[in-house]
């Protein structure tokens, strides 16, 4: 075998190895891109709360929608929060809004929702990374899903996946619990 032929053979072997390595790296990049972004803040990351139950007593129990529903972590100064609230206002009393400020926007946009004002401490306690942030909670108080939405359409798809588009009457209204 001439040197040129050997070099060509070698080149194809190296190319095959390169293809294997590149394919593996591309698959890894795809995996990483489909993964939710990690927050670097210390403490609890709200996206890791999926599967955990909201407490039935104490300060964090106020965010628990009776009979299950959606918790929206919101801020009066955030325009996306208003768009998200409009998308989920139909949930009525199954919606709990946890606001960093007052509840005027919630009262106007979703009058049947339960709103907790000035709830910065709850954001910290639950490790909410940003507003708006959504948690789906089942009847037992278990967090079943979470979303950091970028658009109203994304919220709708998430609600469809969480099977929460069809609002059902709650077992108990929040006011009755308190």
């Amino acid at each position: 075998m001439s040197f040129t032929a050997a070099a060509l053979t070698m080149a194809w072997i190296v190319l095959a190895l390169l293809a294997l390595v590149c394919a593996g790296l591309l698959r890894m990049v795809t995996d990483l891109r489909s993964r939710p972004p990690e927050t670097s803040a210390e403490g609890i990351d709200a996206r890791r709360l999926v599967g955990f139950g909201l407490p039935s007593s104490g300060p964090a129990s106020a965010v628990r929608p009776p009979g299950g529903g959606i918790v929206l972590f919101s801020s009066p100064s955030c325009p996306t929060c208003a768009a998200v609230l409009a998308e989920i206002a139909g949930l009525g009393p199954r919606l709990v809004v946890v606001s960093l400020g007052d509840c005027a926007g919630t009262a106007a946009g979703a009058p049947r929702a339960h709103c907790i004002p000035q709830a910065g401490e709850l954001f910290d306690r639950l490790g909410i990374p940003a507003a708006p942030f959504l948690l789906a909670v089942d009847a037992a108080g278990t967090i079943t899903s979470s979303l950091l939405p970028e658009s109203a359409a994304q919220v709708r798809r998430w609600l469809e996946a969480a099977d929460l588009l069809d609002p059902a009457p709650p077992i108990q209204a929040p006011e009755e619990l308190r």
Binding site: L20, G24, L25, D31, R35
Partner: peptide
């Protein structure tokens, strides 16, 4: 390169 990225 061929290892699976760990999933959360």
């Amino acid at each position: 390169a061929r290892a699976q990225a760990p999933r959360t």
